[in-house]
Measured scan of single mutants.
Amino acid sequence: KVLVLALYDYQEKSPREVTMKKGDILTLLNSTNKDWWKVEVNGRQGFVPAAYVKVL
């Protein structure tokens, strides 16, 4: 399983997205889209901007 680090806070803007806080460790589920990556955080799955996270 691939983990990513949240570099910035992100507030979800649609039901398909998830909120994350800077420093959160998320599970990367899909990174085929260069702009939006699907992650799991706190038991929820959704998209975050790829530029806001870094693969650990």
Rank of each mutant, 00 (worst) to 15 (best):
K1E: 13
K1D: 14
K1T: 11
K1L: 14
K1N: 14
K1C: 07
V2H: 14
V2E: 07
V2R: 11
V2D: 08
V2W: 10
L3S: 09
L3E: 07
L3Y: 15
L3P: 03
L3F: 14
L3D: 04
L3Q: 10
V4N: 01
V4S: 04
V4P: 00
V4H: 02
V4A: 13
L5P: 00
L5I: 11
L5W: 07
L5Y: 15
A6W: 01
A6E: 00
A6F: 01
A6S: 05
L7Y: 04
L7N: 03
L7C: 06
L7M: 10
L7H: 03
Y8W: 15
Y8K: 13
Y8G: 06
D9V: 02
D9Q: 04
D9C: 04
D9T: 07
D9H: 07
Y10I: 01
Y10D: 00
Y10G: 00
Y10T: 01
Q11Y: 13
Q11D: 15
E12A: 14
E12S: 13
E12R: 12
E12F: 06
E12G: 14
E12D: 05
K13D: 07
K13C: 14
K13V: 10
K13G: 11
K13S: 13
K13N: 11
S14P: 04
S14F: 07
P15A: 14
P15T: 09
P15Q: 13
P15G: 13
P15H: 15
R16S: 15
R16F: 14
R16W: 15
R16M: 15
R16H: 14
E17W: 03
E17S: 07
E17H: 09
V18S: 02
V18I: 15
V18R: 02
V18Q: 03
T19E: 04
T19C: 05
M20K: 00
M20S: 01
M20F: 12
M20Q: 02
M20R: 00
K21L: 10
K21C: 08
K21G: 05
K22C: 07
K22Y: 05
K22F: 06
K22D: 02
K22M: 10
K22L: 06
G23Y: 06
G23V: 00
G23S: 03
D24I: 04
D24P: 00
D24W: 13
D24V: 04
D24Y: 05
D24T: 09
D24E: 15
I25M: 09
L26F: 07
L26K: 00
L26S: 03
L26M: 12
L26T: 01
T27V: 15
T27K: 07
T27F: 12
T27Q: 13
T27M: 13
L28K: 02
L28R: 02
L28G: 01
L28N: 01
L28E: 00
L29R: 04
L29I: 12
L29Y: 05
L29M: 09
L29Q: 05
L29E: 04
L29T: 05
L29D: 02
N30L: 14
N30C: 11
N30F: 09
N30W: 08
S31W: 13
S31I: 09
S31A: 13
T32R: 13
T32M: 12
T32H: 15
T32Y: 13
T32G: 11
N33S: 09
N33D: 15
N33R: 10
N33P: 05
N33H: 15
N33G: 14
N33W: 09
K34F: 08
K34S: 14
K34N: 12
K34T: 10
K34V: 12
K34A: 15
D35E: 13
D35P: 03
D35S: 13
D35H: 15
D35Y: 14
D35I: 13
D35G: 10
D35R: 11
W36I: 03
W36F: 09
W36E: 05
W36D: 02
W36Q: 03
W37D: 01
W37A: 04
W37I: 06
W37Q: 02
W37E: 01
K38H: 13
K38S: 09
K38L: 15
K38G: 06
V39R: 00
V39A: 02
V39L: 04
V39K: 00
V39H: 00
V39E: 00
E40V: 07
E40W: 07
E40K: 07
E40A: 09
E40G: 06
E40M: 10
V41H: 10
V41L: 12
V41M: 15
V41A: 15
V41P: 01
N42D: 15
N42G: 13
N42M: 13
N42L: 13
G43I: 04
G43F: 08
G43H: 09
G43L: 07
G43Y: 11
G43D: 09
G43A: 08
R44M: 09
R44D: 05
R44Q: 11
R44P: 01
R44F: 07
R44S: 06
R44A: 08
Q45G: 09
Q45V: 13
Q45E: 14
Q45S: 13
G46N: 01
G46F: 07
G46L: 04
G46H: 02
G46R: 02
G46P: 00
F47Q: 04
F47G: 01
F47N: 04
F47L: 09
F47W: 14
V48L: 02
V48M: 01
V48G: 00
V48P: 00
P49S: 02
P49T: 01
P49M: 03
P49E: 01
P49R: 04
A50E: 03
A50Y: 02
A50Q: 06
A50N: 03
A51F: 09
A51T: 15
A51V: 11
A51Y: 08
A51H: 11
Y52A: 07
Y52G: 06
Y52T: 06
Y52V: 05
Y52W: 08
Y52N: 05
V53L: 12
V53K: 00
K54S: 12
K54V: 14
K54H: 14
K54M: 15
V55S: 06
V55D: 04
L56S: 05
L56Q: 07
L56C: 07
L56T: 06
L56G: 03
